[in-house]
Design a protein around this nucleic acid. Structure first.
Lengths: 154, 154
DNA sequence: GTTATTTTGTTTGGCTGGCGAACAAATTTA
DNA sequence: TAAATTTGTTCGCCAGCCAAACAAAATAAC
């Protein structure tokens, strides 16, 4: 005969009580972010591209002649953080730092042909990834979700 | 006279084109998460409590007799990751690792009186923080947001 | 009942993704 | 011309996570 162990709650028999966490937007955003990040990383593992790196490539592609500071500001991160990101992508031959004749401090960022090729390929995979993570939402719900998130994110 | 510089896009004069990022749920979730995390950290700086640590305290409080593995599973992280989190909270005297008579491997987790006091105080601050980050959403919209996020997060 | 498997907590080493302070060079403002 | 600002950078730091390996303990198989 075996008495009911306290730790039995961990075996999926007893659901874990989440208390006030269930009501917190922050908790659910964090959880969703972890799942999406994880799926993105798995899907883009062959191309070795993280969500952050993808964002950088998209912004460089969509904005001619941006420097690192502008890019960092657009992504809401520090200049100092951007340095390693740019260096990593540059070392893989996906982007270039180009001199700006009118300002010798600045680096103009541009995709290399290799970077453009990769971005095209990854964009398609990102759309597939998005479809996967939003599979249980209708198109209207997905749009609503984005709108509501924008009200938080400015 | 000064010619229009390419880098002028960074001075807020020209909005940065975000391309396909605007359509991606992952991008907006990430952005919202960063803002919420940041605000949480600032708000809870006096108590030196991160969102992750807060979640651990809430779960310990709401579930008697949980061990570290159960807790890790409930939060979707590895046992090995949980160790340092628990150790940190224990060293601050907020939680205790208690022996379980029926299983000498396991640590039963419990709040100390100090931990309970802190959690009570922090819960109120977390609610205020939530009200702040959802300030531009109605109560109904907040509920909708949580529901939609749950459809992603399982 | 002994052996094999599984579970628990842990250490170690590594990774991603960030911040802030400080700094030199270059540019802009006063 | 002198002072202030901007750009890219390095450095040290932090949060938060994973996987591999391991000993101790408990459980399952035989």
């Amino acid at each position: 005969m075996k008495s009911e162990k306290q730790s039995s709650a961990g075996k999926g028999l007893v659901p874990v009580e989440r208390g006030m966490l269930e009501d917190l937007v922050g908790y659910h955003v964090r959880k969703a972010q972890a799942i999406i990040f994880d799926d993105f990383m798995r899907a883009m593992a062959p191309e070795r591209l993280s969500p952050g790196q993808f964002g950088v490539l998209v912004l460089i592609s969509a904005n001619q002649g941006m420097n690192q500071s502008t890019l960092a500001k657009a992504l809401g991160i520090e200049r100092s953080t951007m340095v390693a990101v740019i260096t990593g992508l540059e070392q893989r031959g996906l982007i270039k730092r180009l001199p700006l004749a009118t300002d010798r401090r600045a680096n103009i960022l541009a995709l290399t042909p290799k970077g453009e090729l990769l971005l095209d390929k990854v964009k398609a995979k990102v759309r597939a990834h998005e479809n996967k993570v939003t599979a249980r939402l209708t198109a209207a719900e997905t749009q609503t979700l984005v709108s509501l998130l924008q009200k938080i994110g400015g």
